[in-house]
Amino acid sequence: MTQPTTTLDDQFTAAESRTRRSRKKSLSSNMAAYGFLAPAGFLVITFFLVPVVIIFYLSMTNLSTSNFTTDLSAMQFVGLENFRILFNDQFAAKIFFNTVFYVLVTLSLFNVTLALIVSLLSTHIERRAGFAFRAIWILPRITAATVYIMLWRRLAVEAPYGIINQVNTLLGQTTYNYLDARPWEFVIVVNGFIGVSFGMIIFTSAIESIPKDLLNASLVDGSTILQRIRYVILPLLRWPLLFVVTYQTLSLLTSFEQILLLTDGGPGLYATEVWSLTAYHRALSNYFGNAQWGYGSAFAVVLVIIGVVLAVIYMRVFRFNELVAEPKIEVL
């Protein structure tokens, strides 16, 4: 009797079977993880991916109030016509650079720098005082946008109605219609004061979590406060800084409600109009009624693309994988 020999096919079948069993085992062992991820995954798909797909679709239709329908199949497909109109719009470039200016200046001056300063100051004073100081800085964020803007308008409006101008009058100084004379300054300060609180919370928690041993060691070595900040604290804030820069860039790109309420993109010709405000103006608010949902969606699509590109760049340049891999501060 000859021993049965295994053919090449049998070997392949056995190997395939092993692989399948291994995959099955791996899948079943990961089921729990997928189960835990499912709710978050569902939310991300429903509230992030699906709206983006819908916006892309709407941007290729001529949907407006006058041919309004919620039936996607009944909408009139116009291909890239809205994008042709957008890129031929003589003010698109101005609005784009307004947006770049607004994001860069607000981010650098307030959302990062001032947030860092407030965090450092409030963590270097008596704890309760620091807490109260930070609580005050959170007020702009938790105040209703309309109330917050009304306060600023009341400050900025011209004499004799505006508070700043009332002070100017008392001091014998010239009075201004500040929102006309200095629109960008007000737009940036108003948004910046809101933005400070986010970075402040992140930075403060990071500073508070620095091991005391390190700070004490620097004290023993005779460091001054400034040296401690420069050589101990700031290097340990690298990752929180990068996170705040990334998150706040994307946040500022899409924020427009304060500008809408403060200047509505004016004064004059698109002076403080930013990209997301234009999308809103086109798609959702038209004084004369016939809102252009399709064209406004084209503006939104451009914003989505810019946001995704920036997010990828930030993740690559700032090595986000390392950021989420392990908590650097605790390791130290």
């Binding site: 407006s64 109030t65 608010s285 009624g289 809102a291």
Partner: peptide
């Protein structure tokens, strides 16, 4: 006005339009 008009359109989309809406005559067109 822009928000007011949009409210009516969005309410209609949600099948919650009022029975009677008061607005500018120009809205008749759209």
């Amino acid at each position: 006005w822009g928000d007011y008009k949009q409210e009516f359109v969005l309410a209609s989309e949600a099948n919650e339009a009022p029975d009677i809406i008061l607005s500018g005559h120009e809205d008749i067109g759209a």
